[in-house]
Amino acid sequence: MKAAPFEYFVADSIDEVTTGLADSGEEATIIAGGQTLVPLMAMRLARPALLIDVNGIGDLQGIDLLAGGVRIKACTRQSDALKSTIIGERLPLLAKALPYVGHAQTRNRGTVGGSIALGDPAAEIPLVATALDARITLVKKGNSRELSIHGFYQGPMMTSREPDECITEILFPQWQGEGRRGTGFQEVSLRHGDFAIVAAAAQISVGEDGVCARASVALGGVSGTPFRISAAEDALRGTMIDDPALRAVANAVDQAVDPQSDLHASASYRRRVAKVLVERVIREAAREAANHAAGDAP
């Protein structure tokens, strides 16, 4: 289990990364944390001719609170994100999900942007990014663009990133306005720390009257990409998040998922468990919202 030969280049700046990508095209691969890439290379399922190492670029690291939300630079370690008070206070949904990402030893190396870039349909960070309508900044030589997470994923491990583009940051917008907020995150995996078989995330906002004003509900592991279930969100808005609303949510989930079978779980398992987990994350979020003072983050 040894990687095929490759050339290695340490980039000291984003410019060097984009130049390297422009010059080498699809032969080059960015290595950030490497926690998924290195095993794929060891199994020779990935054989880049050139690795461009971005770990030393200071401009790619850091977590900042901006007017529009929380910006996480792409090469920020997952463990740093987990320790971040900004994320703890402003992105509680992400804070809830991060402990499920691998183990302490992989989070110490793995990056937020790396997980976003890979686009595993069961991974936690892409799921939360989907639930929170994250925006992804991609830079290439002489150009940059910002994309919504929605549409960024095109299928399992497939994104709309061009081969010569580098993800530099992810913006998690904050919900504006009043209301009590709550979040829920749940996943089922074989072992703690394994990739989820099914994962669900929800963030809601309820008014003083207990009526749901806004809801975001997303699922991972049940389709080719993580996705928001807008019909479920519609079914929650304007309700007291009561049993009829949750039944409508379950129907919406049932309509929305398109799961596949694999070694560890059948498609029908994923379909049923998706409904279970969505109900649980909504209840969790509703409980939290009920306990929150109005105007609390997020």
């Binding site: 690795l51 770990n55 190396r109």
Partner: peptide, 12 residues
């Protein structure tokens, strides 16, 4: 920090 040494190349 504790990491997996099988997931880091020596050059890194």
């Amino acid at each position: 920090l504790a990491v997996r040494s099988c997931l880091i190349y020596a050059v890194q």
